[in-house]
Design a protein around this nucleic acid. Structure first.
Lengths: 229, 229
DNA sequence: CCAAAAGTGTTTGTCCTACACCCATGT
DNA sequence: ACATGGGTGTAGGACAAACACTTTTGG
């Protein structure tokens, strides 16, 4: 292959911050490294970008390879290019964040070769490279974006109660919301639709289940509607 | 140098969308290419990232080299990684956008070797590579961000009239604003301060000049204040 | 004195906030 | 029957929108 310039090239990787939500906390998926540097330490899933795949493809491929997760919400976050961020050589990384619904299978979601696990964002181990900074950036982006884009639904099961929805916002925004006002606001926007189903196996009155109506959201958005919590 | 992996590496560049504002329009700085491909065509300023500089450094260096602009507002936008975006070989580019105050010297800001010029965003020539898509992304980011971060001031001179400020928002947001409500809102936030100076050389009543008070903005922000237009 | 833009107040409606009680269900 | 969370209404205040005239200055 001919090169366009004579200089040494930075290597290019992708790293992904995968967020999940359980009844308590916002969680992040980490991988235990099996190679130096930081051998045995925890890091974000990620890896090198191949010359024949897009950045999004690379992120999706690494996610499947390292965590088994596929078909989840994924969005590019920021590209980190500090010169010494990898002690071996110059590596620029395109960071992504992903949102996934944990449902039941929280706490430990390990896969094939490597050890993968969920950690609460509020209580993380020390991370390799500059991955803590990447995670902080992802967390901040999530906090900012969740308020004016309906991405929070990606963290919930397809059918959810209004309390689950409220809890999701409370965890991400890190403040309490008024139950009555929250319900009024959500139901006033017509994008969360009631279903006929109700919660199961709870030791009290069962809550109605709702779903996010993407079709209505898209229609309203085209008409100038702006989602906001 | 030892390489971490055997695969071919994508090349890495930065490209910068420089916005300026005059009395009429939002403008973008373009460079006329002197090499194939797209020889003679117009493109965003940019170039290869060196192995010993950060991405921000690369963007600033290219800006100085190709347009002469320095010490201006610069922010990373998005990283574009389509496989065929450069016909020669795989090139991933980290896009930035920059904001600059045109003051008097609009229209033609050419430099040393290359030909650089301002074009109104609403009437652009055909651009090389995927630069139109990059520009569109930058434009959309600017539209979104200008409403809740005080970055619009970067497009104005240090002392400006409230009409200039309003005009800046009208051009970027592409809608008219009510003069009285706009003034009330801006002056109610205490971050735009009156100066003792007034406009000069106008054939009618001269307007008072104002300045953005970053110190007050930072203080209020720390107290939970959220800028919004 | 005329043209051109600067500068200013009030009313109306909407939306956000704060707040407390009854309801349905499982044990 | 009781414990647990589900579900609802209202009043007050703050803010956004709509709207027109007077003032200042230069030519």
């Amino acid at each position: 292959m001919t090169h366009l310039y004579e200089f040494a090239r930075p290597a290019l990787t992708v790293d992904i911050v995968v967020f999940g939500l359980d009844e308590e906390d916002l969680q992040v998926m980490l991988i235990q490294r099996d190679l130096a540097p930081f051998e045995g330490g925890w890091a974000l899933p990620g890896g090198f970008v191949r010359v024949d795949e897009t950045l999004d493809d690379a992120a999706r491929r690494e996610l499947v390879e390292e965590t088994g997760l596929k078909d989840i919400y994924l969005e590019q976050l920021y590209t980190f290019g500090a010169v010494e961020r990898d002690p071996r050589e110059r590596v620029v990384t395109v960071a992504y964040y992903a949102l996934v619904n944990l449902e039941g299978h929280h706490v430990q979601a390990s896969t094939d070769a490597r050890n993968a696990a969920w950690f609460p964002v509020s209580d993380l181990p020390e991370l390799a490279f500059d991955h803590q900074a990447i995670l902080d950036a992802a967390h901040e982006r999530l906090r900012g974006k969740v308020r004016y884009q309906p991405i929070g639904f990606e963290l919930l099961p397809e059918r959810f109660t209004l309390r689950q929805l409220q809890h999701m916002y409370e965890v991400i925004l890190d403040r309490e919301l008024d139950k009555r006002n929250f319900r009024k606001k959500v139901l006033a926007m017509e994008i969360v639709k009631e279903t006929k189903e109700i919660e199961k196996d709870v030791a009290h009155r069962a809550a109605r289940l709702y779903r996010f109506d993407k079709r209505t959201y898209d229609r309203l958005t085209k008409q100038g509607f702006n989602f906001e919590i």
